[in-house]
Design a protein around this nucleic acid. Structure first.
Length: 622
RNA sequence: GCCCCUGUAGCUCAGCUGGUAGAGCGUUACCUUGGUAAGGUAAAGGUCGAGGAUUCAAGUUCCUCCAGGGGCUCCA
């Protein structure tokens, strides 16, 4: 519905000619109202889905506007020309009538007749509040109803929480012995924990700035961050690695648009469940929403593809930079919760539940291994699995086998009935320094969208079937992986150890420091040679004393530090400080290169896009 | 989105009951030529988040907005 409100000295209108087949009967052909607010109203197509809610929303707006100008005299004027998508006339009439009835108690209501071409004279007062327009839809109007509805649903849909151990035993969440599973306990009670005594921000926020990786961007919307060269490098490497692994697994990489038409028949249904939760933009009077996942793009591709059972499982893959979710502003934090994030998303189309489960197993291994290589081991994550009671009973062996692979107990949530599009979903959660749990990897068995998007494959018997769809993000959002790595480093610092990143991800793998100006030339050559080996080496050519340069290299978390002076020039052995180890190690040039290479084997490599000499690097923050 | 807290130099922060801004780090210049976590001296740097109100006078009080944090809710 769209409303144009004009605070007027008077309005005078006269019905001239009927505009639709069955116009309202005329009480007075001509009417004049003094000192009033005139509401020109367009009832729109979308409003038809919920009359009550659109009327309530309209009344709220009309009252709000009238109160602002302290006017009790109002005119309701049907005016279709505010919209390009009007509702059916009889619906619009009924809305106008209902508005009049409901507003009568509080206002003197005049209503101009519906279905006529009218002549009118109006004198607008012209003060700042005298002309206002409002636009709202059932979606936003319905929000309150939606919430109560979903609350009702939730009440109906009780969750049964358990701890499931690798031996297949189900335990009560309350009485399970968590002595070796502190973080699982935190995950299980995450939602029940009430307000915390200590108010602090998660440590990764300070670290992401201090390490010159990522920062807030006040000129953008909340949850849209800026990446400095070091952060961009780390993110790029993670993106490349996850993509490499998914392609090895058989992922077929595609790229899809970031925005979709809100009126699209298949998408709009999906959207109605989550109104006001995405960015919207307008182009040529059409409205588009920014994708919140890669699902649509890939499903639409699959819908148009010709697929045989021989092609299954068919794994479509995209790394979305970005996916957008307009999370509530109060929920945004550092790299944990964003409004724009980078999501690897791999959908496998499978023929049936058997194929789904066998594929699910492969992907489970893939996700575990990807996280492990990124520096997040089994001990760093807690698994949660959600399913229906029915699915659990029928597939208990399959589920317990997954828990066995993880090798430690998990949190299990079960429902009586299925309300989501999936029957089974797991996540690997990271529990951070503030005891908050965030999902990283996740995979779902979707039994609804194959049909909803009309994706079909031709089976052996030449029949057309809808595939089941698995939704896997092997690592979760890339930003969230960085968040977890930084939080993990903060845990290490708390325990008195040095914070660090995996060597393959670390912006500086080797820092070369000359003792004095005499050694610059030699040190530079050493650093350049290491760099030529495909190692991120840089050179501290600033005129500072050695102590200070080493201190700064430590603060930057350089993986190794080499100091070069007269001794080294003669002996050929280089003193190497390896991050996380106490003593210096004397190494030959080739040993250093081998050390780095052996620890970054199989992982992607990129040079850091900052000058090789530290004296030439700007300071982005600090 | 709601409730609470915060916003002073590039960074971290000080500034008492209103009287027109300070430190350390960093930067720049000069000195220092060094051996595994901070060498010295000096200079430059501020519409005190933005707008409005109160006052002779606002970084300081009040209102609105913006941004960040914590809690609630939420996380397709």
């Amino acid at each position: 519905m769209r409303i144009l409100a004009i605070h007027s000295d008077f309005i005078e209108f006269e019905a001239k000619k009927q505009a639709i087949k069955q116009p309202e009967e005329l009480k007075n052909k001509k009417e004049r109202v003094e000192e009033c607010v005139v509401f020109f109203i367009s009832v729109e197509e979308g409003d038809e889905s919920n009359k009550e809610s659109i009327v309530d929303k309209a009344i709220e707006n009309i009252k709000d506007i009238s109160d602002k100008v302290k006017e009790k005299n109002i005119v309701l004027y049907p005016f279709v020309h505010l919209t390009s998508k009007p509702s059916k006339p009889d619906f619009a009439v009924s809305v106008m009538v209902m508005l009049e009835e409901k507003l009568k108690g509080d206002f003197t209501v005049h209503r101009s007749p519906f279905g006529w071409y009218k002549a009118f004279d109006i004198k607008a007062k012209g003060h700042p509040l005298s002309e206002l327009s409002r636009e709202f839809t059932v979606d936003s109007a319905e929000k309150k109803d939606d919430e109560t509805d979903s609350m009702k649903k939730e009440r109906k849909l009780t969750s049964y929480w358990h701890i499931l151990s690798p031996d297949g035993q189900l335990h009560e969440v309350g009485s399970f012995n968590y002595s070796k599973h502190e973080k699982l306990k935190k995950l299980a009670f995450y939602e029940k924990e009430k307000s915390r005594a200590v108010r602090e921000e998660p440590p990764h926020v300070a670290l992401m700035k201090k390490l010159e990786m990522v920062d807030y961007e006040p000129a953008s919307d909340g949850g849209n961050l800026r990446y400095y060269p070091k952060g961009r490098l780390v993110k790029k490497l993670l993106e490349a690695y996850v993509t490499q692994r998914v392609v090895e697994y058989g992922g077929v990489e595609v790229e899809t648009p970031i925005m979709y038409n809100m009126q699209h028949p298949t998408l709009s249904k999906y959207l109605q469940r989550f109104p006001a939760r995405q960015y919207q933009i307008e182009s040529d009077r059409k409205r588009y929403f920014l994708r919140f996942a890669a699902c649509f793009g890939q499903f639409l591709i699959a819908h148009d593809a010709t697929i045989s059972y021989r092609h299954l499982p068919l794994k479509l893959y995209e790394l979305t930079r970005y996916s957008f979710r307009r999370e509530q502003s109060g929920e945004l934090t550092g790299l944990r919760r964003l409004r724009a994030f980078t999501m690897p998303d791999c959908h496998a189309l499978v023929a049936d539940m058997d194929q789904a489960m066998s594929e699910y197993n492969k992907r489970f291994d893939l996700a575990l291994d990807v996280l492990d290589s990124c520096g997040l081991e089994k001990t760093d994550i807690e698994m949660a699995l959600r399913t229906t009671k029915d699915f659990y009973e029928k597939n208990k062996d399959f589920i317990v086998a997954l828990v066995k692979k993880l090798g430690k107990p998990i949190l299990l949530e079960m429902w009586d009935e299925r309300i989501f599009y999936f029957v089974l979903k797991y996540e690997f959660n990271f529990v951070d320094n503030l005891d908050k749990a965030s999902a990283l990897s996740t995979d779902q068995i979707d039994i609804e969208n194959g049909e909803r998007y009309d994706i079909r494959f031709t089976d052996k018997d030449n029949s057309q079937k809808h595939p089941l769809i698995l939704h896997l993000s092997p690592s979760g959002a890339i930003e969230r992986v960085i968040y977890a790595l930084l939080e993990k480093a903060a845990f290490m610092q708390k325990a008195g150890k040095q914070g660090m990143l995996p060597i393959w991800l670390n912006p500086t793998q080797v820092r070369v420091i000359p003792v004095a100006e005499d050694h610059f030339e030699h040190a530079r050559k050493v650093a350049e040679s290491i760099r030529k080996e495909g190692i991120r080496a840089d050179f501290d050519d600033r005129t500072l004393n050695v102590g200070k340069k080493i201190r700064e290299a430590e603060i930057e978390w350089c993986s190794t530090i080499i100091v070069i002076g007269d001794k080294e020039k003669e002996s050929g052995k280089l003193p190497v400080r390896i991050r996380g180890e106490k003593d210096l190690v004397a190494m030959e040039f080739s040993e250093i290169c081998n050390y780095i290479k052996s620890r970054t084997k199989g992982m992607p490599f990129e040079q850091l896009s900052l000058p090789f000499e530290l004296s030439r690097r700007p300071i982005f923050v600090g």
